[in-house]
Nucleic acid binder design. Structure first.
Lengths: 116, 116
DNA sequence: CCTTGATATTGATAATCATCAATGTTGGGT
DNA sequence: ACCCAACATTGATGATTATCAATATCAAGG
């Protein structure tokens, strides 16, 4: 059940980020921290980098397992975390699962830092 | 001893980030992950936000303890992590310790995402 | 000096996390 | 129907981590 993207929760209740509030609320902070948690692991950063570097824009798990020197279940686990964070998109075609960057997700994450 | 800033390691051996390398190396990834690890906690995000929101640009620990509903040692611990990551600057004046944003650190962190 | 107040550090504990081995699932070929 | 290949899930384990209580440091005032 743990599969709702964090980065675009399909809108909160209010339309835009808080107007002139003094500081980050507890709930907002928890949401934003989830995205950074997804980035807080070297192997996940490398996964993002590998997917981004792929000319076709997408990579399957088998292409990502070897360069990271990790087992396939571990790679799948990391990819799931990145998908749940809204950073990667997963598309299954046949036996393969293709992962690609969610367009604009990295930029949006960078924006989270600006609106702290 | 764990007090070297990550965000500006005073230069690696080579001058600039890798030129046309296919993907993030293991060592680079570990360094970048350290910064995101520092951001991967709701209370630390709120600390950054509180410091940023302060008109004077700096906050002492006593001002940060109450709004987060955390004990003073815990806040000090989080602040240390943010300082070690190169995000906050600490200046001790008298009995108080004043924390302020390192200029450009958040922007530089955002840049890390662009150069994945 | 002695006390007080503001922070930092240490030690302990419960929770979270990264990893792997084993197993489950599912789609394509024979 | 059967098997194989690609991927996901589960369970277990060792390593980090967030937190607090207790204690240490350290500067300013009396």
């Amino acid at each position: 059940m743990t599969s709702q993207p964090i980065l675009e929760p399909a809108t909160d209740e209010s339309c835009c980020a808080r107007a002139g509030m003094p500081a980050l609320g507890a709930e907002e902070a928890k949401q934003k921290a989830l995205v950074f948690k997804a980035l807080a692991d070297p192997n996940r950063l490398r996964l993002l980098s590998l997917v981004k570097a792929e000319a076709s824009g997408e990579s399957c798990v088998c292409d990502l397992t070897e360069p990271l020197d990790l087992g396939q279940p571990t790679v799948s686990h990391h990819l799931k975390i990145l998908v749940d964070a809204g950073l990667l998109h997963r598309e299954k075609r046949g036996t393969w699962a293709y992962y690609s960057l969610v367009p604009g997700a990295l930029e949006k994450t960078a924006g989270l830092l600006a609106t702290l």
